[in-house]
Amino acid sequence: MEQMRKRETGIVRSNRETARGHYVIEVELSGVFDVVSPGQFVMFRPGTGETPLLSRPFSVCSQTETGETTKIELLYRVVGTGTARMASLRQGDTVNVLGPLGRGFDMDKGSRLILVAGGVGVAPLIFYAGRRRAQEDGGRVRIIAYVGAADEDSIAGADRLEQYCDEVKIATDDGSRGFRGTVTELFRNDVKHYGKEASVVRACGPRAMLSALAEVLDGHDIACQVSMEERMACGIGACLGCAVRVRLDDGSVGYRRVCKEGPVFDMEDIDWHED
C-alpha cells in the first residue's frame, strides 16, 4: 500500500516578530513531509488545547530539507484568537501540521517575472522567487516585486524578497515608505511597460487587492495567477467551507474549493464581482 499521509507533529524552532504584528514561525518536521510547491499551504494548529478548535491555513514561505528532517517557515499576522495563540508559541513547543495541500503556482519560464504582494500575501511569493532563481538555466530571469503594506513598520518580508529580486517596489497606505497608495495603484503606473511575451504575474493578498489587480491587468493580456484566501475547516476538500466563486466554461458562475482546486487560480477564472 502507498505511504499513508498524516497530520504531523512538528517542533517550533523559532517564532519571531519581523514587522509590527507580523511573525515568522519556523517548524521542524519529519523527513517524510513532502516537497512543497510554492503556493501550496499547510493546516496549522498548536499541539495542545481545544482553542482554537480548528487548524488555520497558511501558505508556506520556505522549506529547507536536511535529510532526516524538513523545516518550513510560515509568515503570519496576528488578527484573532488563533494567530494570537500562535504568536505565544515558544521554541520547543509542539504543533500539528497537515500538508502540503492544494495547487501551487505554475513555475514560469519567461524572462521577466512580476510579483504583487499585499500584507502577508508576500509569503508564497518569497518561496516562489527563491525557487524560480534556483531553477534558472542559461537565461537570467528579471524579477520585479511590488509589495503593499499599511505603513513602514508593518512591511513584512520585503527584505527576504530583495535576496531574489532585481527590484522591490514598496507602497504604503500612508506614504511612510515608498509610493503613497495601494500596491495595485503603484503597479498600474508601470503595467504599460510590461509586454505579454516576456512577463507573467504571480500575486497574493487580500481579495480586494487581487480584485483591483484584475482591473489593472484587464486588456493587457499578461498571464496572471493569484493565490486566494478563504476561511477553511479541513483543508482537504471535505467541508466545502472555503468556496470561491468562479466563471465556468458555459458562462455561468459556480463555486470551487480554495483548498483543493486552489489556492492558486488563473486570474481569469475567478468571478471578481462582489455579491
Partner: peptide, 23 residues
C-alpha cells in the same frame, strides 16, 4: 445544488458555525 455564498464558516468558542447550503 451550488451551495451558499462565502464566507460559509466561522469558528466560535469550542465550535464551528457553518452555512454550506448542501452543496
Amino acid at each position: 445544488r451550488p451551495g451558499n455564498p462565502p464566507p460559509r464558516i466561522a469558528e466560535t468558542p469550542s465550535g464551528l458555525l457553518n452555512a454550506i447550503g448542501l452543496e
